[in-house]
Every structure is written in structure tokens, then in C-alpha cells.
Amino acid sequence: MKNNLHIITGNKGFVGLNLTTYLSKANKPFIGVSRNPNDNEISYTSLSVEDFNTSKSCIHLAGKAHDLKKTSDDSEYYKVNTELTKSLFDQFLQSDCEIFIYMSSVKAAADEVVGVLTEEVIPNPVTVYGKSKLAAEEYILSKEIPTNKRVYILRPCMIHGPNNKGNLNLLYSFVAKGIPYPFGKYENKRSFVSVENLCFIINELIDNKKIKSGIYNIADDVSLSTTDLVRIIGKTINRPSKVLQIPKFMVSIIAKIGDVLPLPVNSERLQKLTENYEVSNEKIKKEIQKDLPLSTEEGIIKTIASF
């Protein structure tokens, strides 16, 4: 049926798998775009303007994630995160497709946050990952959007959900093994977004023509400290969560040793666990005018329960 399909790039990734399940339940047919397509998918090279003409939306999730081991070549980030996005967006503009949703990242705006991150911040990414995402954003924003089309740039913070462990896995292993969490001296606040809330928002963007085109931060309603997370994990798996108040200078020494030796903690991981990174979701909440399905704690509990 004309203009009934939803193109989803990166449909085999964590967000993609969750989104395709979510859209299926909402009776929204989709076509996956993949580098190695299965029977019900197409490749990027064979994707055409005609495919866009028969689609209502293109949800561009595919991208090269931040490589913590720093083994990736910088050009790879721009090839995948920037140039692929530009190519897809050009096809979208040439077609009858109505909606383009680009999955960017808060890291396109800032690697460190003072206060609370809003969409009004002047972007200043430090990593090549963030810079490549921002370059794609800037290309999209440089184009004139026809009045019959809607374009959304989403900047999610740390996404989690069932079977996606990420940094939560390290905290989980601390609690599950009865190892005390050693960073109790650090007081921080971090924003998270559950993949269910993210899928809910994408579905709203598809359905609600009143939501204005633009950049939107995506986060759950409440930020949590890492110590809060440790306690939620303990409660979820019914294990006591122990928090130690080790002096910060000692923790820093241990992390520096972890940069050289294979310890569970190194400098980068310490920063991720203890930094402040609060993200405002007020702009998108004002637009959708609905409550998110999951509270911050409910989302964390669902993720931890899947481990």
C-alpha cells in the first residue's frame, strides 16, 4: 500500500530490534535496510527513491557506535554516521516520504555537561563519534524542508533495555557477586532512557503531525546517581548492595593502574560511572503531551531483571 511502509535502517541493532517489535504490535509495516540483508530486508545499495515513495517514514538508526577501545579509524565514523545519513536524507527529500527520523546522540552536543543539557546548547563534541553525528545533523539542518514533510533529529542519552547490558552490566556484576561498589564518595546525576520509552516517542512522532520538526533530547523523566543504580540493582535481584566510601585519590590511583592492567575499572570507565550527565526531556514531553510509559526506575528494573 502506498505510503504505508516505514523504512528502518539498522533494524538488527539493539534499538532496531526493539523498534521493529514495537511497530509490529502497533500494526505498522516496515522494511529493514541492512548491509547484509535477509529475505525481508533490502541493502543500502539497492535502496532507491522509489522505496521512499512507498514509505511514510524513514527511521535512520544505523550508525557506528563509540568505540571505547579506540581501535576504529576516524574515517569510518564519517563514512557511516555522516555520509550514509546525507545519502539517505537526499533520497528522502527527492521522494514522497513524509517523515525522516535521525537517531543522533547527546554526544553530538556535549561530552561533558554542566547543569542540565538542553537543545539550546551550542554543540561542542570532543570525540570523532560526536563530531560525525553532529556533521550529519548540520547537513540535515542546512536543507530546506518542504511543508508536507517532517524531520526529527533525536539525541538520546544512554539507552538501556532488556538484554542490553552496557555499563549497567559492570554495576550488576558488582552487586550480583557481593562486591561492594567502591565509588560512594562520588555524588553524581545521570540521565538514562529505556528503549521502551524511546520506541514510544518514535511511534508518537510518526502518528502526531502536530509535533514540529527539530532537534529533541530523549531521556527518562528523572536522573539517577550511580549509587541509586546500585541500590535499585540490589533490590531487583534481592541482593544486599554495599557502597564503600573510598577516598577519591585512592580510586584515581586504582583507575590509572586499570589503564595498564586488565582491572574491572580504568579511567574511562570511572568517568562514565561517576560523571554528571543530566539531560532535559522537557521539549519532547511538551510536544507529545503524554506521559512516558515507564518511569526511570521501572525501566532500570526491567533491564536488570533480564540479566
Rank of each mutant, 00 (worst) to 15 (best):
N203F: 12
P180G: 11
F100H: 07
G161E: 00
V193I: 15
I140A: 05
G115Q: 03
H160F: 15
N203K: 11
N124K: 08
K79F: 11
I99L: 12
E137M: 06
I202R: 09
L84S: 08
L88A: 12
D111W: 13
S95R: 12
Y152C: 13
F89H: 02
V175D: 13
E204Y: 08
S142D: 07
Y139S: 03
Y78S: 01
D96Y: 12
V113K: 10
V195D: 02
F92V: 04
S132P: 07
L134S: 12
T147Y: 10
S142L: 07
I140E: 01
N167H: 06
G166H: 08
F92S: 05
I140R: 02
E138C: 08
S104M: 02
K133D: 00
A110Q: 14
A110M: 11
Y77M: 02
N148T: 15
V175I: 13
V126G: 06
K107T: 11
T82D: 03
S194W: 09
F100Q: 07
L117F: 07
K79Q: 14
F92G: 05
K165S: 14
N197C: 06
K143F: 02
M103C: 13
E137R: 06
I179P: 00
P182A: 06
P123G: 08
N124F: 01
D90P: 00
Q91L: 14
E98K: 15
L168D: 06
F174R: 00
I145T: 07
D74G: 13
N188K: 00
Y181W: 08
E119I: 01
H160G: 07
F92P: 05
F100I: 07
N124H: 09
R190N: 03
V126H: 10
N163I: 08
F200M: 13
S142Q: 05
L88C: 09
Y102G: 01
N81F: 05
I145N: 05
L198F: 13
K177R: 11
S173E: 15
P162I: 03
L198M: 13
K131F: 10
L198N: 10
N169P: 00
N163G: 06
M158Q: 14
S173H: 11
S142V: 07
S142N: 04
K177H: 08
L117Y: 08
F200R: 12
E119C: 02
E83W: 09
E187M: 08
I201D: 07
V126E: 15
G130R: 04
S142G: 09
E204R: 14
P125H: 09
S173G: 00
L84W: 01
R150K: 13
K143L: 08
K107M: 10
A109H: 05
F100P: 10
V121Y: 05
S132A: 12
F92A: 05
V193F: 07
P180C: 09
L141S: 07
Q94E: 14
S173N: 15
Q94A: 14
A108G: 13
K143A: 09
N148Y: 15
V128C: 14
Y181P: 02
Q91C: 11
I101N: 04
Y78A: 02
